[in-house]
Design a binder for these strands. Structure first.
Length: 251
DNA sequence: AATACCTTCAACCGCCTGTGG
DNA sequence: ACCACAGGCGGTTGAAGGTAT
């Protein structure tokens, strides 16, 4: 693919492969380091940054990801959690194993647009919006009107509780982590349950209140393609393999 | 078949927070 | 206490594919 001046554009298979390999070696934390050591980020050039690598990993390459359309249960859950938390996409995503904040954000945007259109061109109740909101339409989210007038609809406007995104901050995130529902914990649980060959079990541990559902198999395309053995390696072992970077960097 | 319009989603941007020196 | 840096998050953009005309 042609190099863009500003936007780096879609990731290539080689880039994905490098990233997968180096995350396997060094873990999914030191993104800037991974970007450099893998050759994805070259000093003085404007290519893949650590941030960009993280995004690619989290949103596309992570082995725990589900692909494909959201299930009705997931859709319902998103709506309910959005009513509860507003645009806290990452928090909502934690309750939907295999789904990313980005995915949910995109879904919500689409969902709100549909809703806005329905308001503009109302459909008879019997056939309207098969999913989700019927159960809550009589009981809209506290303090909010997530479905605004179409003319000035803000797809992102938080329908959620009074805590808008910027105000609900790290202390609460920390709370989440202490309660054990950080993404790391979730991925660990996924990994653990995969080892037990019973993926569905693990999802019940994500349940918050009564939320729980099963999930079809999940994997990113690249992940399907490459071996999974890399993930088992710990950081010390991987240090020994540092010279590999030169090999991969030569791509 | 051509095209215009719409939808989806990957990728990027900018801000904020945490951490280490 | 201050600063610099890396990572995380929510918001936005744009390309690609799909659908309607």
């Amino acid at each position: 693919m042609a190099q863009e001046e500003i936007r780096k554009g879609p990731w290539t298979e080689q880039e994905d492969f490098k990233l997968v390999c180096f995350v396997g070696l060094f873990g999914d934390r030191r993104w800037d380091f991974i970007a450099k050591v893998s050759g994805l980020k070259v000093a003085g050039e404007d290519n893949r940054t650590g941030k960009s690598c993280r995004l690619r990993w989290v949103n596309y390459l992570h082995p725990g990801l589900k692909r494909g359309k959201m299930t009705p249960q997931e859709e319902k859950l998103v709506v309910e959690l959005h009513a509860k938390w507003g645009n806290r996409w990452s928090r909502i995503a934690r309750k939907l194993p295999g789904r990313t904040d980005n995915e949910i954000k995109n879904y919500w945007r689409t969902y709100m647009r549909k809703k806005a259109q329905e308001r503009k061109h109302p459909i008879p109740p019997s056939s309207s919006s098969s999913n989700c909101y019927s159960s809550t339409s009589n009981n809209p989210p506290a303090n909010s009107s997530p479905f605004q007038a179409p003319e000035e609809v803000s797809y992102y406007d938080t329908g959620g509780p009074s805590l808008s995104a910027p105000t609900r901050k790290k202390s609460e995130e920390k709370e989440d982590r202490e309660k054990g529902d950080s993404m790391d914990d979730i991925w660990k649980d996924i990994a653990a349950s995969e080892e037990n060959n019973d993926i569905t079990q693990s999802y019940n541990c994500f349940s918050d209140e009564s939320y729980s559902f099963t999930c079809p198999q999940m994997a990113s395309p690249v992940w399907e393609f490459y071996s999974d053995s890399l993930w088992k390696m710990d950081e010390d072992e991987s240090e020994m393999l540092l010279p590999m970077s030169n090999h991969y960097s030569s791509w």
